Simulated assay, not measured.
Amino acid sequence: MLIDLLPGVRAYLKDESGYPSGSHKEPAAYAVVARALADGHDRVFVGSCGSYGRAMATACAEAGLKCTVVMPEGWGDSGEFAEMTGAEVRFAPGGYEDAVEESHRLADEAGAADGNVDGPYQDAVLAGHGLVVDALHAELGPAPTTMWIPVGNGTTIVAMHRRLRALGWQAALHGVGSPGNNPIVTSWPGRYLPLPSDAVVTTEHNEPLVNWHALSGPQAMAAIADSGGAVHAATDDELLAARASLARHHLDISPSGAAGLAGLLRTARAEPLTGTPIVVLTGRPH
């Protein structure tokens, strides 16, 4: 969808929220499930703050696999969607990183498939996340462009960069995260440094963008730098404004899923943009 954002500023929107789980992470989940089945597993464990858990629960249900999603205690996603889809939901004290660590432990203990983005099926995760680049390339062609993407643990950006290089497509990647709440944002453009685990602040709007240690952080920063892009911050108010802007085009996107647009709008108000950027919208409200 091509829309006018501001006077003289147009952008392509790639809505990746249309999957049953409402998350762009569903292709990655299906890729992991296919590998888990091939390896003879009947259960997949993942840690998630919401969207990957919903995607994995959906993929496992369709394939007939059992699924356990470990979520941070007290965060906004109650795990209701994953449970309704047939998954077991457990809660771990702490944040997203603690949920992932607990799911690693449980998968190892059960001899089950570890479907985490930093687990043994990482290549499958990256292949699934990269499919959006192939779809965009087929639709828009190889002209140089910029892509604006929400950034949490950085895995999506790493995957998209890998596919861009494979296709020879010159596209500058712009990651947009929560100010002060993600080490990709706070470290850019310097050396990657994790944040203190108690330094991040989650809200109902920014949770998927919050990490104290982004699992693919250093690789994501290297990918962004190699592409000629940059990292940007978007406040909760800017996330909500971007969501409202999308609603006027009949798109129901979560505030965090609209982070790419929030970063683009902030940048467009401060400096001239060249070409027609692509904004990847990553999720519906749960």
Rank of each mutant, 00 (worst) to 15 (best):
P189C: 10
E207D: 09
E207H: 01
V185I: 08
G190A: 08
W212V: 02
S216A: 15
L195Q: 03
I184L: 14
V200G: 06
S187Y: 06
P208T: 06
E207K: 02
E207Q: 09
R191Q: 14
G190D: 09
V201A: 11
P183M: 04
Y192M: 06
W188G: 09
A199D: 08
A199Y: 00
T186V: 07
I184F: 07
L193M: 14
A214P: 05
Y192W: 13
E204G: 14
N206F: 03
T186F: 01
P208M: 09
H213M: 08
V200C: 12
T203Y: 01
E204D: 12
N211E: 15
S187T: 12
A214V: 11
V210D: 05
V201I: 13
S216E: 12
P208K: 02
E204Q: 12
S197P: 08
V200M: 04
V201C: 04
T202N: 08
P208S: 10
G190C: 11
H213F: 10
I184T: 05
P208H: 04
A199K: 00
V200P: 07
T203C: 03
N211T: 14
P183L: 04
E204P: 12
N206P: 13
W212H: 15
T203N: 04
N211A: 15
W212E: 02
V185H: 01
L209N: 07
